[in-house]
Write a protein that binds this DNA or RNA. Structure first.
Length: 532
RNA sequence: GCGUCCGUGGCUCAAUUGGAUAGAGUUUCGGACUUCGGAUCCGACGGUUAUAGGUUCGAAUCCUAUCGGGCGCACCA
């Protein structure tokens, strides 16, 4: 819709025209401040220019009115155009808001270590990433969702140790002394139990077998993580394991050429040449590679797989890492501008107004799976998708558990359910509704229809600006328009029944598509009890 | 100290990326059911967009400084 209008104006003015939503709908459907930018070039007042432009529009199919208000140029779409578009949308509902982009994208997100279950902080990045993924897919991009599994390094050894400690205390009933760092949590119980079944009881006490134990156990932890994600409708196309990458290290290192150098028996990457604060160690004196080395091999592998654009979603605590990874990409001979790192800011929890500190090792974590159990996947997704990802999010646990009408997800679902109910109660046939011509609409009906047809613009904007919160924002306001219209107008048994139902069908479609892009299934009816 | 993200009604968040009178929800108060689902709708209260300068037709948004907060600043991942 917007594309159509935009193309029309581009043709007329010979330049790209910024189209926006007017502040007040009575001004029209679209507006542009083009006169302001022309004012300087033409040395005329914006008012005069917009007046002139407005009067230069002749009769056409798309606009019913073009007028100038305080320098803004406002466009009102013709009923014929809107009506035609609405019919097209209903007949081609599977094409609604879709595009055909050709680019290949690689989106890496979550990538939590396989040493414990996902906590509430991971949930934010997971929801953000999956929503972007769904948007991109809908827009026709060839996008791959990837999870990078850090299954090498100290934290894996620590997992082995932690299982042993748990088993010795709870199965062997020994009294054990806990070192400073180890993992704890209920998830260790089944791991310890299964380890005993698989390896025998002696696995718990043999320190030399920690690594063996950990390598086995990490798969179990990954299963846990994948299940939690699946419960939230989040799926990955590919998993890349850090442990499989190091064989490639020598080749990758030589590929970087002068980007790496040896000093004091260690190998450094000269990342300070590429904007990093200092050079970084990639191989230690004893020959063990650092974490960064793994990331370098991984990113080399990503670029060798050849995508048009790469998006990483990292927690904000990793932002210091961006410069060094980008430096490595440059040394490898690739364009680091193709790598886009999005940070999802921390989630801080309050409990009864007091800051609630999370520490994985201390075990007092809020698990993602616990939240899903309590409020459901839909509410979790909605809440996290509603906030801009670059703002630290703070919420009270009590608030999060609330499950009443203040929760916007219920509000939107109810709007959709209302539409389904009224459609099923109508005695009109499908054809009678579909063939209704959407003309002579009054202001409210026109606005409702136009809002419902706006989904394609929202989807496009939400993805390209990486601002997924625009989608829930839109759905809330569309639901509000629907509820208001529903309250103000009687529909069944009136002369306008077919018209209004047709508009409702478009609204329902927008809500349904919008929700599905958030990984939420629209409901056709709401049960009386409040439950998921 | 350096880097980075931020600071918007009492609270949680928006604001078409520089555009028209800064909007929603929540809280508080007051209204609307002989109506298709009242899980709804309407109204009121509530703002110097942290502060001070600057840039221009126009600033919550860009620049500078100050104040306040989160997160980094490993040969840990």
């Amino acid at each position: 819709m917007k594309q159509r209008v935009s193309a029309l104006l581009r043709e007329k003015f010979g330049r790209e025209v910024v189209l926006e939503k007017p502040r007040d709908r009575s001004f029209g459907h679209f507006a542009t401040p083009i006169a302001f930018s022309l004012a300087k070039e033409l040395k005329q007042s914006p008012m005069a220019i917009s007046e002139e432009l407005a009067s230069s529009f002749e009769e056409n199919d798309v606009f019913s009115k073009v007028e100038s208000v305080k320098g803004y140029l406002n466009f009102r779409l013709s009923e014929g155009f809107l009506s035609q578009y609405a019919s097209w949308v209903l007949q081609n509902h599977s094409e609604f808001a879709k595009q055909e982009k050709k680019e290949k994208l690689l989106l890496e997100f979550v990538s939590a270590n396989p040493t414990g279950p996902l906590h509430i902080g991971h949930a934010r990045g997971a929801v953000y990433g999956d929503t972007l993924y769904r948007l991109a897919k809908h827009l026709g991009y060839d996008i791959t969702a990837e999870y990078y599994v850090n299954d090498a390094g100290n934290q894996i050894d620590l997992l082995g140790l932690s299982i042993q400690l748990y088993g010795r205390e709870n199965i062997l009933k020994e009294s054990v002394e806990y070192p400073q760092s180890y993992y704890r949590g209920d998830y260790l119980a089944p791991l310890a139990q299964k380890a005993v079944e698989k390896f025998g009881i002696e696995i718990l006490s043999d320190e030399s077998r920690q690594k063996e134990l950990a390598i086995w156990a990490k798969d179990g932890v990954m299963e846990l993580i994948v299940k939690t994600l699946a419960d939230t409708n989040i799926h990955f196309d590919t998993f890349v394991y850090e442990s499989t990458l190091y064989d490639d290290w020598d080749r990758v290192m030589s590929k970087m050429g002068d980007g790496v150098y040896k000093k004091d028996d260690k190998i450094y990457i000269a990342s300070s040449q590429k904007g990093d604060d200092s050079d970084r160690v990639v191989v230690r004196e004893d020959g063990r590679a650092t974490y960064l080395a793994g990331d370098i091999v991984y990113h080399n592998q990503k670029f060798e797989r050849s995508y048009d654009h790469y998006i990483n979603i990292w927690g904000a605590d990793h932002h210091g890492y961006i410069a060094r990874v980008k430096a490595a990409v440059e040394f490898l001979g690739y364009d680091s501008n193709k790598l886009e790192v999005l940070l999802s800011q921390m989630v801080s929890l309050l409990k009864d107004g007091e800051p609630y500190k999370m520490s994985k090792r201390a075990g007092n974590v809020i698990l993602m799976s616990d939240i899903v159990d309590e409020i459901g996947s839909d509410a979790l997704r909605f809440i996290f998708a509603s906030k801009k990802s670059d703002t630290a999010l703070e919420f009270d646990l009590a608030e999060f558990k609330k499950q009443d009408s203040s929760n916007p997800i219920f509000y939107i679902q109810y709007a959709h359910a209302r539409i389904q109910t009224i459609l099923s109660k109508s005695t009109l046939t499908q054809d009678e509704v579909m063939n209704a011509s959407l003309t002579n609409l009054d202001e409210s009906a026109d606005i409702l229809l136009f809002d419902a047809l706006l989904l394609p613009e929202i989807v496009d904007d939400a993805f390209h600006s990486r601002g997924v919160q625009k989608l829930p924002e839109y759905l809330k306001s569309l639901a509000a328009s629907l509820h208001k219209f529903y309250y103000d107008y009687k529909i069944l048994g009136t002369p306008n029944e077919a018209k209004y139902l047709k508009i409702f069908m478009v609204v329902g479609l927008s809500l349904r598509v919008g929700l599905s892009l958030m990984g939420i299934k629209a409901k056709d009816y709401m049960s009386k009890e409040i439950e998921e």
